[in-house]
Structures are given as C-alpha cells and as structure tokens.
C-alpha cells in the first residue's frame, strides 16, 4: 500500500504535466470541433442541395474513418511544406474527427426546432441567416447540450489516441513511461485513470449544470 502512494508522490510532477498536456489537447480539439461542427451542421440544413451534399460527405468520411488513420495522415502523410507539430496535428485530427459528430448532433437539434417556427420567422420577414441565428440556433443549443456533453467526454477519451499515435507526452504516455521506469504498472495506470476520471466526471457535472441552467421553463 505504501508503494501505491509512493508512485504518486515520486512522480507527481510527471502526472501533473501529463494531465495538462491532455487538457490542452482536449481544449484545442474542442475549439476546432465546435467551430467546424457548427459550420458542417449549417451546410447540412441549407436549402441548396449541393451544399448539403458537401456537409453530408464530410460527415460520412470523418465518421467512418479511424481516428488513428486521420492522425497518421495529418502528421506523417502531408508534404513537408505543411508540416504540423505533434500537438497541432493531433488536436487538429481529433477536432476534425469530432466535428463530424458535432455536426450531426447540432443538425438533429436544428431539426427538433420544427418547420412551423422557421416558416413563421421567414414570413415575418426575417432573412434566412437571421432565422437561423435568432430563432433556430438559440433553441437548438438547448437540445444539443446533452449529446454534445457526451461527445466531449468521448473526445477526452479519444485524446489518448494522440498520445499513443504521435508520441505526445499526455497522461497515458506518462503512465506508460512511469511504469517502464518503476515496473509498477498497476500503480502508474491507476493514478492516470484517476486523472482521466477527474476530467470526464467533472465534464458530466458541467453538462448537467448547463442543462438545468439553460432549460426553458414552459
């Protein structure tokens, strides 16, 4: 039992730095996934058929390709003129990958708003853009928060793939390094697991809190 805490004590700075690398990956990917995802959702709900098709193709490709393949292409595959750093390539890959799911979640939120409201807004003289911005999106945001929340929890878990594929020193790779140093695999991975659970569980609480705060009282 002494060893259990001993590993944490001796390697505390390592664990903390890995934890923050994971947080940074998650943060950047979150920003990319949100912005690209909303654009994709907008593509998929516009009236123009060919724009819809672009959005649909994006979703089908990125949802069916393994994240690992995407990361390899972005980091090892691109011509040397557009060489990304490991963290950038990783976060970009994870962000673009998650964006497809975000797009789908936001789209279903938009559809949940109901054609009647869109028709009403258009007939009141709102332009298409204003309808989307002032009528559809504020309501859609509320319905998409729970699915988005679980998406970002999934994304946090997927961030470990960046560490494994591109040798970024995130929480998982730190655990691997520590277990190689000390042969205390159980202890090292236990404390890293605590780190991951810390992120995923607190995300769950944030989402639940947001949900109750944004809920419309009808």
């Amino acid at each position: 039992m002494g060893e259990f805490w001993g590993v944490l004590e001796r390697y505390f700075p390592e664990f903390v730095s890995g934890f923050f690398v994971t947080l940074r990956l998650v943060g950047i990917s979150f920003a990319i996934a949100m912005s690209v995802g909303v654009v994709i959702a907008a593509f998929r709900v516009t009236p123009a058929k060919w724009v819809q098709r672009i959005g649909g193709t994006y979703v089908e490709i990125f949802r069916n390709i393994p994240l690992l393949v995407l990361l390899f292409i972005l980091f090892y595959g691109l011509p040397s003129e557009v060489q990304f750093s490991r963290v950038t390539a990783g976060a970009l890959g994870l962000g673009l990958y998650t964006a497809a799911y975000v797009g789908e979640a936001v789209r279903s939120g938009v559809f949940a708003v109901g054609q009647g409201q869109i028709d009403a807004s258009l007939s009141l003289g709102f332009s298409y853009r204003d309808t989307l911005r002032r009528v559809v999106l504020p309501q859609a945001v509320r319905t998409v928060i729970p699915p988005l929340g679980s998406l970002f929890i999934a994304m946090t878990k997927n961030s470990a793939v960046i560490g494994g594929a591109l040798q970024v020193q995130d929480l998982m790779m730190k655990a691997r390094g520590i277990s190689a140093d000390t042969f205390q695999t159980n202890e090292a991975f236990f404390w890293a697991a605590v780190g991951y659970l810390l992120i995923t569980v607190s995300l769950t609480f944030v989402v639940r809190n947001l949900e109750t705060r944004l809920a419309i009282r009808r």
Binding site: I153, V161, G163, G164, M172, T185, F189, Y196
Partner: peptide, 11 residues
C-alpha cells in the same frame, strides 16, 4: 466506460 480505450489496451 469512462476510461480511454487505448489506455485500457495499453494497461
């Protein structure tokens, strides 16, 4: 469910 899959595999 709340642990990364790769993390489980590596462990």
């Amino acid at each position: 469910r709340n642990l990364p899959l790769l993390f489980i595999l590596l462990y």
